[in-house]
Amino acid sequence: MDIGIGLPGHGPWRDGRSLVQWARRAEERGFSTLSVSDRLAWSTPEPLTTLAAAAGATSRIRLLTSVLLAPLRANHALFAKTVTTLDQLAGPGRLRLGLAPGLWEDDFVLSEVDHGTRGKQFDRLLDRLTAAAAPGDPVGPPPATPGGPPLLFGGTSQATLRRIATHGTGCIVGDATVQAVQDFAPRLRRAWADAGRTGSPRLVASVMYALGPYAEAAISEAIGPYDAFAGEGYARYGISIARTRPEQIIATIADFERIGCDELIFMGNDPDPWQVDLLADAIGL
């Protein structure tokens, strides 16, 4: 199972250069993937811009949006161009897109995008993204990765399963529990097989972490306000399942590897780049 690391973009970062330091350290320490999350109505950095900076600062580590709120990108042709440009900057095989329809209505209000029709907009965007990867499409540049960057999808709905089966290479489960992944995996594999896809869908999970003497405070400061939209109980739950000790990190890796995950991503909450080294040391990278 591959082990990736996520930038602490939802936490209280104050200097974008620290995120670039995270990218460099993540590659130096041997993590498989660097991921970045997405919110509009929050201080989270814009994901594709952030990954462009990371692409320039690194040369090998894979780059992932986990997850991009796809329907907010209302100009589908421009979005496709942005993706193929980023794929060129990163080089073949490095960029993967984790995509989801979006949950928070305030993101859509600020974007002046209709929240109620986001599913239809999402499907149109996927069609345009697929077209941009085909030879002769007027939107350029062409992607560096043949066929365009692989797509992973967040969510557990029937629409998500359909998108994975028709456009994707697998799924990404955020704030994952072992039980949630175990419950979803059979549905995913069944939809994949029913669509006549060969091989197996990729199964990626992400969990929250912070390490060191201030880990619990960092988790509370990052996750508490971020999850407050869903109520105090939801925020407390998000804080309670975050990993803050090395032994929890090791146990989490064993648990997700046991159920057949292909990759596990530890999402940062403390913006100090030292967190990359603490995680790498905990797992022996």
Score class of each variant (00 low, 15 high):
3 I>R: 05
3 I>F: 07
4 G>W: 03
10 H>T: 11
11 G>S: 04
13 W>S: 04
19 L>S: 01
23 A>Y: 00
28 E>W: 10
29 R>F: 09
31 F>M: 06
40 L>T: 08
42 W>H: 13
45 P>W: 02
46 E>C: 06
47 P>V: 02
49 T>A: 13
49 T>Y: 11
50 T>M: 09
52 A>N: 08
52 A>M: 10
53 A>P: 01
54 A>W: 00
60 R>A: 14
64 L>G: 02
67 V>T: 06
69 L>V: 15
76 H>W: 11
78 L>V: 13
79 F>L: 15
80 A>T: 00
80 A>G: 01
83 V>P: 00
85 T>L: 02
88 Q>K: 11
97 L>M: 05
100 A>E: 00
100 A>H: 02
103 L>A: 14
106 D>P: 11
107 D>H: 01
108 F>M: 08
109 V>Y: 13
120 K>R: 14
121 Q>R: 15
125 L>D: 03
126 L>E: 02
129 L>N: 03
132 A>G: 00
133 A>R: 02
139 V>T: 15
140 G>C: 10
142 P>A: 09
145 T>E: 09
146 P>M: 09
149 P>S: 07
152 L>Y: 05
156 T>W: 11
157 S>W: 08
158 Q>T: 15
166 T>D: 15
167 H>A: 14
167 H>S: 13
170 G>C: 03
171 C>P: 09
172 I>D: 04
175 D>K: 11
176 A>Y: 00
176 A>C: 01
177 T>Q: 08
178 V>P: 04
179 Q>R: 14
180 A>I: 06
182 Q>V: 14
184 F>R: 01
185 A>T: 15
186 P>S: 07
186 P>E: 07
188 L>F: 05
190 R>E: 15
193 A>F: 09
194 D>P: 07
198 T>H: 12
208 M>C: 15
209 Y>L: 12
224 G>Q: 05
229 F>R: 15
232 E>L: 12
233 G>C: 10
234 Y>S: 13
234 Y>R: 14
237 Y>V: 11
240 S>P: 03
241 I>V: 15
241 I>M: 12
246 P>A: 05
248 Q>L: 04
249 I>V: 11
258 R>M: 12
264 L>N: 02
267 M>V: 14
269 N>D: 09
270 D>H: 01
272 D>C: 08
273 P>F: 02
274 W>R: 14
277 D>H: 12
279 L>H: 03
280 A>I: 05
281 D>V: 10
282 A>L: 05
282 A>F: 04
